[in-house]
Computed example of a mutant assay.
Amino acid sequence: MQDMDGRLYDAYVACLQPCAIGFSEEVETFTLQTLPRVLEKACGYKLFIAGRDCVPGEAIVDSVGENIQASRRLLLLYTASTFSSKKHTSSTSSLSSNNNNLSKNNNSEDNGESKMGEGGSGERSEEVFPDTRQNLEVLLAMHKTLLERSLKVVLVELEEINSAQLALFPESVQHLRKKQGAVCWWKEQRKRQRRRTCMTRREDEEKAEGDAQLSPSLSPSSRFWKEIRYYMPVRGKRAVYLERTALLNL
């Protein structure tokens, strides 16, 4: 059911697919369990998660385009190897070339002349990214956020990224990361690991496992989730604004 602004989802979650390099059990757990547990169940957001909510048999291009268009935000989940594996080397080079104009023309996109055919059309995206859903998601998301300014993209870093790996990222992603930063899940996990290593008694470890639901990493008030929520749309604000506008027009 659409909200009053015509959007179906608060966020589209672009994540690694099971066949992708960098996909792991930890990635799957975060994407399909942790993320919806906090954002959907605890915070009340409505998410579209690629791989969970896709209609069987639906064309990837149609699914990605329509559902991104129906979302207020896009959460781009990535690991250290998402853009830096051999599988993506040639396509990353092409994407960097295609998206070079996205970062360079970021201050001049209001002329209305930039089109996906120039920065990467639907046909070009299939040529650059033959198999991977996430690559199409990245291309569309970067176009919409840097050229159209019609979508807010939130970068969610699942693993620590070093300078060599970052250098292989598409220029558009590097530009966005430098401009607004990334929300780092790995920092949350590192803090959690430190707490675990500080536990010296067996009973404390068992108690920590038994209190999994109280883990700070699952608390909406933890630093990581506060950062995510900062970028998410304000719930209820759209409906209140539209209602007030309608009353003023009476």
Rank of each mutant, 00 (worst) to 15 (best):
L140K: 08
L136N: 08
L77V: 00
R133N: 13
P130T: 01
G120K: 01
S150K: 10
S114A: 09
S121N: 12
L75N: 00
K86L: 09
T79D: 01
S163M: 07
K144T: 05
P56N: 01
S150M: 07
N98G: 15
E137F: 14
N98T: 14
E127F: 11
T132M: 07
A164M: 09
S103N: 15
K178H: 14
V64P: 01
G119W: 02
E157I: 03
Q69L: 13
P170M: 05
E113A: 04
S94Q: 14
S91I: 02
N101F: 11
N101Y: 11
L176R: 09
D131V: 08
L136E: 06
R52F: 07
L155T: 03
G117T: 09
R177G: 12
S96W: 06
N111T: 06
R124Y: 12
L176C: 08
E66M: 03
S172M: 02
M116C: 14
L139E: 02
Q165H: 05
N100K: 05
V61K: 13
T89N: 13
P170Y: 00
D53E: 01
V173P: 13
N107Q: 11
S125E: 13
V138L: 15
S114M: 10
T145L: 02
L95C: 12
E109T: 14
S97L: 14
R133F: 14
H175G: 09
H143I: 12
S84C: 00
Q174V: 12
A164S: 10
N98S: 15
L75K: 00
N162F: 11
G119F: 05
N101C: 12
L155R: 07
L147P: 01
S121T: 12
L166S: 04
E66Y: 04
S93F: 04
S108W: 05
S81Q: 11
S103Y: 15
S108L: 06
G122F: 08
A59E: 10
A70Q: 15
